[in-house]
Measured scan of single mutants.
Amino acid sequence: NTCEECGKPIGCDCKDLSYKDRHWHEACFHCSQCRNSLVDKPFAAKEDQLLCTDCYSNEY
């Protein structure tokens, strides 16, 4: 699979995080606004962007 954020392949030695058929490296899986990691945290998706709950609450 190819990472949505950096565009590089996700190798066998990396954790592949996925959501709705989109894939990310663990280090690339972060909020589109504040850039905080979303690994093991709740998040929301809006208009193809992933947002942490704080940024989502502030926007919507």
Rank of each mutant, 00 (worst) to 15 (best):
T53K: 14
S57T: 10
Q49I: 10
K46I: 11
K20Q: 14
C28L: 00
N1I: 10
I10D: 00
N1Y: 09
H30S: 10
L38I: 15
E26P: 05
L50H: 02
C12R: 13
C6K: 03
E59I: 06
D16A: 05
L38Y: 00
L38H: 01
K46Y: 10
C31Q: 00
K8R: 08
C34T: 01
S18I: 06
C28K: 02
N36E: 12
C6I: 02
P42N: 15
D48M: 08
N58G: 14
L50R: 02
E26G: 09
D54P: 10
C28A: 02
N36T: 12
P9T: 10
N1T: 05
E26Q: 06
F29R: 03
L38F: 08
F43E: 12
K8F: 10
G11L: 04
T53R: 12
D16F: 06
C55W: 00
G11Q: 04
N36I: 11
S37P: 08
I10L: 05
N58F: 10
E26F: 03
Y56V: 12
E47C: 10
T53D: 09
T2S: 08
A27E: 11
A27M: 11
F43L: 15
N58D: 14
H23A: 04
L50S: 03
C6R: 00
D21P: 00
T2W: 02
D16G: 07
N58R: 12
T2I: 15
C3H: 00
R22C: 03
C34V: 01
A45E: 15
E59T: 10
S37Q: 11
A27L: 11
C14L: 12
D54M: 08
K20A: 10
G7P: 00
L38E: 03
I10G: 00
C55G: 03
A27D: 09
P42V: 07
S32Y: 07
H30P: 03
N1W: 05
P9G: 04
H25D: 00
V39W: 02
C31A: 03
C52F: 00
C14K: 14
H25Y: 00
Y19W: 05
Y19N: 08
E5P: 01
E4L: 05
H23P: 00
C14F: 14
K46N: 14
W24R: 05
R35Y: 07
H30V: 12
Y56W: 08
D13A: 11
Y56C: 13
A44R: 15
C3L: 00
G11T: 04
E5M: 12
D40G: 08
E5L: 13
C12A: 15
C6H: 01
S18L: 12
P9F: 01
H30G: 13
E47R: 08
Y56E: 15
K41N: 09
C28R: 02
C14H: 08
I10K: 02
C34D: 01
K20N: 12
Y56P: 13
E4C: 13
S32C: 11
S57E: 14
C34W: 00
K46M: 07
E59F: 07
A44K: 15
C14W: 07
C12S: 13
D40V: 05
L51M: 14
Q33K: 09
D16R: 08
F43A: 10
G11D: 08
D40I: 04
G11A: 02
D21I: 00
D48H: 14
F29S: 06
C28V: 01
D48V: 08
C52K: 08
S18T: 12
S32L: 07
E5C: 10
G11W: 04
C52G: 04
H23M: 02
E5S: 08
C31P: 01
K15V: 04
Q33G: 14
N1P: 00
D54L: 07
Y60I: 10
I10T: 04
C28T: 04
C28I: 00
G11M: 04
D13M: 06
W24C: 03
D48R: 09
K8W: 05
E4H: 12
K15D: 05
N36L: 13
K15N: 10
F29P: 03
C3W: 00
F29C: 05
K20V: 06
D13L: 04
D40L: 05
E59P: 10
K46G: 09
T2K: 10
R22K: 09
F43D: 06
R22Y: 08
K46T: 08
D16I: 09
A27G: 12
Y56H: 12
S32V: 13
K8I: 12
K41P: 05
N36A: 12
C31H: 00
D13N: 06
D40Q: 13
N36V: 11
C31T: 01
R22L: 11
K15M: 08
A27I: 06
V39E: 14
T2D: 04
R35E: 14
C6P: 03
Y19G: 02
H23C: 04
N1R: 02
N58I: 06
F43W: 15
D48Q: 10
L38M: 10
C6A: 01
C52R: 05
F43Q: 13
K41R: 12
H30F: 13
S57H: 06
S18M: 09
N1G: 02
E47T: 09
C3V: 00
C28F: 00
Y19P: 01
S18D: 12
K8V: 05
C31F: 02
E47I: 06
C52Y: 00
Y60P: 15
D21L: 04
K15L: 07
Q49D: 09
N58K: 10
D16V: 05
L17M: 15
S57P: 15
G11F: 03
G11P: 02
Y19C: 01
L17E: 15
K8T: 13
A44H: 01
E4T: 11
C28N: 04
P9S: 04
N36K: 14
K8N: 01
E47F: 06
I10S: 01
F29A: 15
H23N: 06
Y56K: 15
L51K: 12
C14S: 15
C55T: 04
K20F: 05
D21W: 00
Y60S: 15
L38N: 04
D54F: 04
A27F: 13
A45K: 11
Q49Y: 09
G7A: 15
L17G: 10
S57L: 02
F29W: 09
N58Q: 12
C6N: 00
W24M: 04
K15G: 06
E26L: 02
E47P: 07
A45I: 03
A45W: 11
S32Q: 10
S37E: 10
N1V: 13
D21N: 06
V39K: 15
N58Y: 09
D13S: 05
C55Y: 02
P42F: 06
E4D: 15
K8S: 04
E59S: 11
K41M: 10
C14I: 12
H23R: 06
E26A: 14
S18P: 07
L38K: 03
Y56N: 15
E59W: 08
S57G: 15
G11R: 05
Q33I: 05
C3P: 00
L51T: 07
D13W: 04
D40E: 14
Y60G: 15
I10M: 03
D13T: 06
E4W: 11
E4N: 08
S32D: 09
C14E: 14
Y60V: 08
C34E: 01
C34F: 01
L51C: 13
F29E: 02
E5K: 08
C12D: 14
S18K: 04
H23Y: 08
H23E: 03
S32A: 15
D48S: 13
D13C: 09
C55A: 04
N1A: 01
F29Q: 06
D21A: 09
Y19M: 03
Y56T: 14
E59R: 15
C12E: 13
D16Q: 08
N1L: 09
F29H: 03
Y60T: 15
A45C: 03
H30Q: 03
C14T: 14
D48T: 09
A44C: 06
Y19S: 06
C6F: 00
K15H: 12
K8Y: 04
N36W: 05
A45Q: 13
C55K: 06
E4G: 06
G11H: 05
C52D: 02
A44F: 02
R35Q: 14
H25R: 00
Y56R: 14
C52Q: 05
R35P: 11
C12Y: 12
C28Y: 00
S37H: 08
H23D: 00
P42I: 05
T53A: 10
D16M: 10
K15Y: 02
N58P: 15
R22Q: 14
K20Y: 04
C6M: 00
Y56A: 13
N58M: 11
D16K: 11
Y56D: 15
H30R: 11
